[in-house]
Amino acid sequence: MHDLIVGNTLVENDWHWLRLPESATPVRKSAGKVVLFKLTGEPAATADVVAACEVPAGKVMVPLSVWLHRHAELENRVAAGEIGVWLDSHEEPVELAESVSGDLNRLPLIGVNFPKFIDGRGYSTAFILRTRYGYRNQLRALGDVLRDQMFFFHRCGFDAYQLRADQNAERCIKALKDFTTPYQTSTDGLTPVFRRRSAQQATA
């Protein structure tokens, strides 16, 4: 069972996470090409798989590749609030933003996958979605979502956490508050510590 925390409460998960089988050969994007330099050795689904996959009924988080190639056919369901999109750790928020003509808030949910918890790209993805693209709806951490990273997820803009199956939800909720006086600003509305210090002094 993957527990789902939204905000700081354990809730029922009514979204299906649609994943595609990865192709056997990793897509190697070459290092050194100015624009293409993304990451090497990411496995990805082939175009055929993307075209053929079935998007089940109900609320579904679809992979970015499915969304990009098939959003025309999913439009009605978007209007009904049934379609969310999830990004893998190497995928670009800009592609998603452009595909919805800049209005990400048409989507009720965006997911960001952490294939391994030491892969920290998703934190930047979340930051970018929240700040550059002004996304305000649910931002859900998927994959290797563990207690010891809850604090970081939250600060970078996630507000929903689909826990790895072995995680204890209660402890994860507690871990959202591991630190009460972080130094930096982030997308969680906290100002940098130096502004808090000076505000406090002004009112003291």
Partner: peptide, 16 residues
């Protein structure tokens, strides 16, 4: 010192 505070538990860059 200012950068020490900026870098300590920076939420976005804990897993570079």
């Amino acid at each position: 010192e200012v950068l020490r505070q900026w870098s300590t538990f920076h939420p976005e860059f804990a897993f570079l």
